[in-house]
């Protein structure tokens, strides 16, 4: 079953084409890596899929809803963790969970019970009443991810979730992503770390607003005759008109 289907999606800002006629689809439960150099159009494409940005042309269906006409319904069935850290720093850990759970309509009783469980799983019991601004970045990112899937969305969009996070925490973060995937949540993730790309079921690589490659990491390595995803990425990125090389 396809949970994301995109056909000829395009976004232009004036004369600049940020996303150029991309088409792809994502299966339910998949971990889909969305790769590309800075400015390749990843974030723009993701924002269109989340209903934050209107496409110039083309169509997209996310969780069964049209992103152009039913964006509010799309929003009810997805989770989103943005590039910028987006929890409220002046709210406590449990208050952030309660706020977002409440917004998505999770009942108060369920929220209370599951907050306990979640904090235990994360090993955050002691931080329940800490203000989010007092937590280290890695902890915040784990918390932000947990909050973004607290309402059991069918898809979660992660925009560079591990930027600036240490390798140990990154590892733990990916374990959390696998757990979410096992629960049946489709994971759509952008990243700059090529080792992380290896963890994905399939990856797409964007160059200058277009998707230049889309397959499983193993097939891509074979196709490009590369030892690892890093080499695949560099071979593709070299073709870009605006990479300054």
């Amino acid at each position: 079953m396809k949970v994301i289907e995109v056909e000829n999606l395009t976004k232009k800002f004036g004369s600049f084409t940020a996303v150029d006629n991309i088409s792809f689809s994502v299966e339910k439960g998949e971990i889909f890596g969305f790769l590309g150099a800075n400015g390749a159009g990843k974030t723009t494409a993701m924002r269109m899929l989340c209903g934050l940005l209107s496409p110039t042309s083309g169509k997209g269906v996310v969780a069964g809803y049209d992103i152009l006409h039913d964006s509010e319904k799309v929003k009810a069935s997805i989770g989103y963790m943005s590039q910028k850290f987006a929890l409220y720093e002046d709210l406590k850990v449990w208050e952030n969970i309660r706020l977002y759970a409440g917004i998505y309509g999770v009942s108060e009783k369920e929220t209370r019970e599951r907050t306990q469980l979640l904090l235990a799983e994360l090993g955050f019991e002691k931080e329940r009443n800490s203000l989010v601004k007092s937590l280290p970045l890695g902890w915040r990112q784990k918390l932000a991810f947990s909050v973004s899937i607290f309402h059991n969305p069918s898809i979660v969009f992660l925009d560079e979730p591990t930027g600036g996070v240490d390798p140990v925490t990154r590892r733990q973060f990916w374990e959390m992503i696998y757990q979410a995937s096992e629960r049946g949540i489709t994971v759509f993730v952008t990243t700059h770390y090529m080792d992380e790309a290896e963890y994905c079921n399939r990856v797409s690589i964007m160059v200058d607003g277009r998707i230049d490659a889309l397959d499983s990491p193993a097939s891509l390595r074979k196709e490009f005759g590369a030892a690892d995803m890093d080499e695949v990425f560099r071979k593709l990125a070299r073709k870009s008109k605006n990479n300054g090389l």
Partner: peptide
């Protein structure tokens, strides 16, 4: 940036 997180909710 917190407003974007609110905008992506219903």
């Amino acid at each position: 940036g917190t407003i974007e997180q609110i905008n992506v909710t219903p």
